Simulated scan of single mutants.
Amino acid sequence: MTLIYLVRHGETDWNRARRIQGSTDIPLNDTGRAQAARSGHLLARRTWDGIASSPLSRAFETGAIIAREVGIAAEEIEVLEDLVERRYGEAEGLDDRELVQLFPGDSPVPGRERREDVAARVIPALVALAERHERDRPEGSPDARLIVTTHGGVIRTVLNHVSPQAKYHRGIPITNGSVHSFRHVNGTIELVLFNDPIDVESIADDCVDFDEQNAVEYRELGSEPRVQ
């Protein structure tokens, strides 16, 4: 078994402005770097066997900051293309008001990646990552522990995929720098729901939930985007 801790990247200026990022490569701001360091302090309570990251700079820099805190060299971070954020097509760069104006109601957003397609690339990538580490471990050794720095849309998709009966996991906020623990068992990914106190402590009260920052995701919860 391998424990996989998915960490959402720190804040960017687009997060703060509630602009939809998706595959657009927006860097961390200073608040985001502080959030990544805070996550690193929490994760430093454990020992880790590796760090993997999305290729987008906001996720990779989050991983590099965490790596420094937990004692892993930044050069050892494994970049996995399939962990990139969900693509939002023509909605990328839009804020709440602009999305409502251009794509009102249930209007489809051209180029938006279906959540099933996100799951189809992310879940196998996590399974393959875990299996590589498991193959290299001596028999009888403790479970591997891996940190994966990625994105809100990816984490939301994994949550929905591994436990679809709890639709959208509305009670689990995905704030910048938050940690969400899963495990790999026999080729599948399972949710470890707040079994580790790091998960709870990583969700900061002063941070906005991913679904509140992303009007497309908010709409998929069954609500219209907030127009401010």
Rank of each mutant, 00 (worst) to 15 (best):
A215C: 03
R8G: 04
E201L: 14
D49N: 14
I174M: 07
H9A: 06
G40N: 02
R87P: 03
D196T: 14
S163Y: 13
G111F: 02
R114D: 13
V118F: 03
G177P: 10
T149H: 12
R115S: 13
R58L: 11
R33T: 08
L83E: 00
V227C: 07
F210K: 03
R183D: 06
R145D: 03
I72Y: 00
R156W: 11
S223C: 12
E139Y: 08
I66N: 04
R115H: 12
T149K: 00
E98W: 02
V154C: 02
D209N: 13
Q21L: 08
A204H: 15
D30S: 14
V158L: 04
P55A: 03
S107P: 07
I155Q: 02
N214A: 10
A91K: 01
V200A: 03
G187W: 06
T150N: 03
G40A: 13
D13N: 15
N195Y: 11
D49E: 11
G187T: 13
V200Q: 08
E90V: 00
A36R: 09
N176D: 15
G63I: 08
E98F: 10
I189M: 05
P225V: 03
E134V: 05
V208T: 09
Y88T: 06
Y168P: 05
I172A: 03
A67W: 02
T24E: 08
G171C: 04
E139C: 09
G10H: 14
R112N: 07
P173I: 14
G177M: 15
H151M: 10
I147T: 06
P55M: 01
G152P: 11
S107N: 08
I203D: 02
H184Y: 15
V192S: 12
A52N: 05
F182M: 10
E224R: 07
A67H: 01
V84A: 03
